[in-house]
Amino acid sequence: MATGTRGTRGAGTVGAQALPVIESPAQVAPADARELSRQFFERLAVLREGTPEHQYARNTLIEMNMSLVRFAARRFRGFADELEDVVQVGMIGLIKAIDRFELSRETEFATFAVPYIVGEMKRFFRDTTWAVHVPRRLQERRAELTRAREELEKRLDRSPTAKELAALMGIGEDEVAEARLAANGYTSASLDAALSGDAVDGEAALADVIGAEDPALGLVEDFHALAPLMAELSDRERLLLRLRFGAELTQSQIGEQLGVSQMQVSRLLSRTVAKLRAGMLGGSAEGEGSPA
């Protein structure tokens, strides 16, 4: 961990106190980054936004916690071609988490940040791939249908019928219809498009007549993935999570109910959440380790 102090008025000063100067924030070990992040968040909370001191603290937090983005990106390592883009959008989630995190939450920053990071990564894939989920078999069939249609249009100088497409592709007409239906999931209409297809002043767009997006819908996939992991927890671990995140009790209040110390509650919560996080990211709590 490379830290030091500046002899002149540095970006990391707060009144008479000074934040440690991190020469290479991205190289800070996860264990060190965890403690240093707490110090920087404490200062960030009292600094005026837009000042050099605030900018230094915020930028250092971003660089120190980039390991969280790399950790979350492992979940999408099967998409090697898009991995760099995945990391970039993950950084957006990290920045959002830093701007919204409060030490009063009694939650480790990593626990708070990972859902933001993974959420941005999932949104990237939703926005850049199929508009709706379509099985791979139908995705491939759609591509075959496109090639067959282009070939027949050149040969016949007109749009081919379903029967002609089926004959060329060696499948039934019902399968052609299924492939055509699947093709509808590949593109989606712009919400800004006029309903009639003609842009006329004052004409309603699609976005004007449909309901607003419910932010909670983005959690549905996570809830489905979390359910089997929750089932593997002990009764005590599930009770602990229910009291903390359902009833929103403090760690001290939970300790009083369970007859244990606040420190024990903190350790149990950290261990349980780490276990769930590792399962969500496709690793194991023992093998993967915990990032900053």
Rank of each mutant, 00 (worst) to 15 (best):
L138C: 05
L103H: 05
F109I: 07
R277V: 08
M263G: 07
P160W: 00
G279F: 07
I62M: 14
E82A: 11
L145T: 08
R149D: 06
D192R: 11
G218W: 00
Q139E: 12
E173Q: 10
K122C: 04
A166F: 10
V176Y: 06
S196E: 15
L243E: 03
A33D: 05
R137M: 06
G185T: 01
A167N: 14
V273R: 10
T128D: 04
D99A: 06
Y116N: 02
E178Q: 14
H54C: 06
I171M: 02
A2Q: 07
L103T: 08
A194E: 06
D192I: 05
L181G: 01
P160C: 00
K122W: 05
R236N: 07
I254D: 04
E108Y: 09
M64S: 03
A212D: 13
D174R: 09
A207C: 09
D85T: 04
E232L: 11
L195H: 12
L195V: 15
A113T: 05
A204N: 07
E288G: 15
A216W: 10
A177V: 00
R77P: 00
D235T: 06
G289R: 02
D127G: 03
E102F: 11
L219K: 09
R75W: 05
S261W: 01
L36N: 02
E108V: 07
D99S: 05
E203S: 12
R123W: 00
E108H: 10
V46F: 07
R75Y: 10
A80H: 14
Y56Q: 11
G282D: 01
G283W: 03
A16T: 15
T13A: 14
A204W: 08
E286F: 11
Y116D: 02
Y186H: 13
E203N: 06
L258Y: 08
G93D: 02
D85H: 10
T187A: 14
M64K: 06
P20C: 06
N59C: 13
Q27T: 13
K163C: 03
A148Y: 06
L168F: 05
P160R: 01
A227T: 09
V209D: 01
V118D: 08
V28D: 04
D235C: 00
E120D: 01
L268D: 15
R9S: 12
E153W: 01
L240W: 03
H224T: 12
S261Q: 02
A204V: 06
D99E: 10
S284E: 14
D201R: 13
T60H: 13
L240I: 00
V69S: 05
A80W: 14
F79L: 15
R9W: 12
L47E: 15
F124L: 06
L191Q: 11
G93N: 03
G172E: 11
R48F: 04
A207P: 01
H224C: 07
A189Q: 12
N65Q: 11
L156G: 02
S24T: 15
D157C: 02
M64T: 04
G218T: 04
P25M: 08
R136A: 15
S266I: 01
G10Q: 09
T51C: 03
L138F: 09
L36Q: 02
